[in-house]
Amino acid sequence: MQSFSNSASGAIVLSMADRIVENRAYLSEIDGKIGDGDHGVNMAKGFGMAADRLKDGNAGLGEAMNTLGDVLMSEIGGSMGPLYGMMFTEFSEVIEGKEQIDPATFSAMLHKGLAGIQEVGSAKVGDKTLLDTFVPALEAFDAATADGKSFGEALDAFSAAAEKGRDSTVDMVAKIGRASRLGERSRGVLDAGATSCAIILTTLAEGAKERLAEPA
């Protein structure tokens, strides 16, 4: 089975930060439609700060995720600080100490991250949140590996499901968070968190895929 190196993959977090910072205005614009318009600004601030701390170092993926989780949790606030902060902290806990990340580790990491998110918030799939990206992606990954697909194929399924999950939020009525006060008026636009989550997960999958190698 293929895997990718933890210690050689810290740059994936820098790519995530790049993608989030690039999408700063877009994410805030989406959030402004039915939310308060701060999503891109805060995400870019948190991911940008983490990238600054990591830039000159030589952190592996686990370490980099730990730094990102810390920065989000301690500096950002809002909804994303705790939710993504917890997610990345939990991710890092699973892969810390593992030199190679194989599909089983990757899946365990996702499950632990999900548990962290749900411990802090209490949203469910269908509430029009980042979970509508995260949960289908995780499920697609597990289904692909259970089907005997390669790590690379499973990562593709993961990314595709994340994007599909993100798009599914357009038709949803928000049940949690700020937009839930709008009731039916929240229908018809993407959820901001679901959109940033798709960016994070597809960048993670892409970075992992590029680094995949047969065990030496």
């Binding site: 301690s74 950002i76 606030g77 600080g81």
Partner: peptide, 8 residues
Amino acid sequence: NVFSSPPP
């Protein structure tokens, strides 16, 4: 931050 809760 603007329209965002402070962190813990």
